[in-house]
């Protein structure tokens, strides 16, 4: 097919050339500049910039909260995905559509409204704060907004797999004497595992880089609720470009590793899905 196409269909070199040029100008060269700038630092300077106590605390908050949020997303994403595929209830189409809202809602709005909801006199804070649950200005708040921004990933990766699951497998399990729980744990869950892991990785990757929503709710307390992207911004505001770049390189490396991992996982889920 390939060689036939290239002889008959036009525009191969034009479209490929344009794509690669645009990709290079907008994405690759700017990202390269970041690494180039970082390479102007000596190894000890680089280390001093990325491994301060403040930076370490920021990495712990960033990756820790992202991990917890992604794990929560797997749990609630499975419940929501399962319910939307298997059951019927009123307004189901609307709820299904609403799952995508975190993709469309600007993160700044999400952060602001979450911060307002969970403060002492907020709609939800008025019940939670007296119980000693402080969501605003705490790590819990960061986890909450990260759960929001990553929510659609697990639901949307799990849904197509559940829809494609054929009835015969479950019927066979049932005929062979498995109860529903056994069928779910031993037949359905293993089939969905690649999709679940992909959804988890996507939600995690998104959460690690998130900035807009977090700054509203975290209160930006050093060593406590400061995340790595905030640290970059505060270094930039001090015109400490090299330190900012060094921390950015750490984050970029983490995202590249995650991206590679997601790609491997997607290939794996296609083979097993």
């Amino acid at each position: 097919m390939a060689s036939v196409n290239r002889r008959v269909l036009p525009g191969f070199s034009l479209s490929l050339g344009y794509s690669v040029t645009y990709l290079s100008l907008l994405v690759l060269i700017p990202l390269g500049a970041c690494f180039l700038k970082a390479s102007s630092l000596s190894l000890s300077e680089f280390w001093a910039a990325v491994w301060t106590d403040q930076a370490q605390a920021a990495y712990r908050t960033t990756f820790g909260c992202a991990l917890v949020a992604a794990a929560i997303n797997v749990f609630i994403g499975l419940i929501v995905g399962w319910t939307l595929v298997r059951y019927d209830f009123p307004l189901k189409r609307m709820f299904d559509a609403l799952v995508d809202l975190p993709f469309a809602l600007p993160t700044a709005v999400a952060g602001m409204v979450y911060a307002t909801l969970y403060v002492e006199n907020g709609w939800l804070g008025q019940f939670l704060v007296p119980m000693g649950i402080e969501v605003a200005h705490s790590k819990l708040g960061i986890v909450m907004v990260l759960v929001f921004t990553g929510f659609p990933f697990v639901v949307r990766t799990v849904q197509p797999v559940l829809e494609a699951l054929d009835a015969e497998t479950e019927e066979a399990a049932s005929i062979l004497g498995a109860n529903r729980l056994q069928t779910f744990m031993r037949v359905i869950l293993p089939t969905m595992l690649p999709a679940i892991v992909t959804g988890f990785a996507l939600a995690f990757a998104r959460a690690v880089g998130e900035y807009g929503s977090v700054i509203f709710i975290s209160g930006n307390v050093r060593f406590e609720t400061e995340i790595a992207p905030m640290l970059i911004v505060s270094r930039l505001e001090q015109f400490a470009y090299r330190e900012a770049t060094a921390i950015a390189v750490v984050l970029l490396t983490a995202s590249f590793v995650l991206l590679a991992l997601i790609n491997v996982l997607e290939k794996w889920s296609k083979r097993h899905g």
């Binding site: 700017p30 990202l31 500049a33 970041c34 700038k37 990757a205 690690v208 880089g209 998130e210 900035y211 807009g212 790595a228 992207p229 970059i232 911004v233 930039l236 470009y241 900012a244 770049t245 950015a248 984050l251 970029l252 995202s255 590249f256 995650l258 991206l259 997601i262």
Partner: peptide, 13 residues
């Protein structure tokens, strides 16, 4: 998979 803050930073650089 690039943090928006990093995306902004590269253009400042």
């Amino acid at each position: 998979s690039v943090s928006p803050v990093v995306a902004g930073l590269v253009f400042v650089l």
